[in-house]
């Protein structure tokens, strides 16, 4: 936070009912260290009460406020205005891609959450082993009994950014595949590999690595998808030699 003041134009995507979407501009005086979500909330509070957007925790633990900010997926509650524009500049806010729009900036997460549920994605995981293997030593000293909430906050940013998810409604999507990888690592449940070993599962990914670039929560979905591929291949090879069912 600072005592600096910027004038910034928020260009907000609006959509009500069946009317075609359009953009509406709001000029705001902001502290550049405020977050984009603070700006959106102020537009609602002081300029236009009809603005619809999704938000809850305001500190990146719930994943409700994913939006497109100047064309890039951001968790708006932890995206400082300073990081996306300059004094006198613009902040274009749109709903996430690849999800049905409910209204304005709010999208329908039903399909995504249903897929996460079908994957038995764990929300509480042991602290030890909850970091990625390449994050050397992180949490490795933790008592085996300690647990924590998982990294994935189900914000949908990765699915919005994925260049393959744009064209394939049936594609499970990065977060779901990453969740399958983590669930398999924890439970060893082979059914997860079977489920993801298919054209709309682990093999649909085209190695764009956009998911990892936009993930606000250290999930690294692309790494997990590649790891899941290895596990799927490993299982196929074992099956070939009659070592697995």
């Amino acid at each position: 936070m600072s005592h600096e003041r910027w004038t910034v134009t928020f260009i907000v995507s609006r959509r009500k009912g069946e009317q075609p979407p359009h953009f509406q501009s709001f000029q705001l005086e902001v502290d550049p260290d405020e977050y984009v979500l603070d700006g959106v909330e102020r537009i609602w509070a002081f300029h236009d009460r009809s603005l619809v957007f999704r938000h809850a925790c305001h500190h990146s633990t719930c994943g409700a406020c994913g939006m497109l900010v100047n064309g890039v997926e951001k968790l708006t509650c932890i995206t400082p205005i300073r990081s996306v524009t300059s004094n006198g500049g613009k902040v274009k806010v749109e709903p996430l891609r690849n999800f049905p729009v409910i209204s304005d900036l709010s999208v329908d997460m039903s399909t995504f959450y249903t897929r996460m549920e079908e994957t038995c994605a764990p929300q509480v995981v042991p602290v030890r082993g909850s970091a990625l293997p390449y994050e050397k030593g992180l949490f490795e000293q933790a008592d085996p009994a300690y647990e924590r909430l998982a990294d994935c906050i189900e914000c949908g940013c990765c699915i919005s950014a994925c260049p393959v998810a744009v064209t394939t409604p049936e594609y499970q999507g990065p977060a779901v595949l990453a969740a399958a990888q983590q669930a398999f690592s924890l439970t060893g449940h082979a059914g997860l590999l079977e489920k993801m070993d298919g054209a709309d599962g682990v093999w649909r990914c085209h190695s764009g690595f956009e998911c990892t670039a936009v993930c606000p929560s250290n999930v690294d979905p692309a790494w997990r998808i590649m790891d899941l591929r290895r596990k799927v291949i490993g299982r196929r090879i074992k099956r070939l030699f009659g070592l697995a069912k």
Partner: peptide, 26 residues
């Protein structure tokens, strides 16, 4: 409080005028 990979520190206590928008003071 630990949360996911974060820590959250809380909190203060004051009274607000308009509950719809309360700014966070530096």
């Amino acid at each position: 409080i630990p949360q996911r990979r974060m820590m959250v520190i809380g909190t203060t206590s004051y009274e607000a005028e308009d509950v719809d928008y309360i700014p966070v003071e530096d």
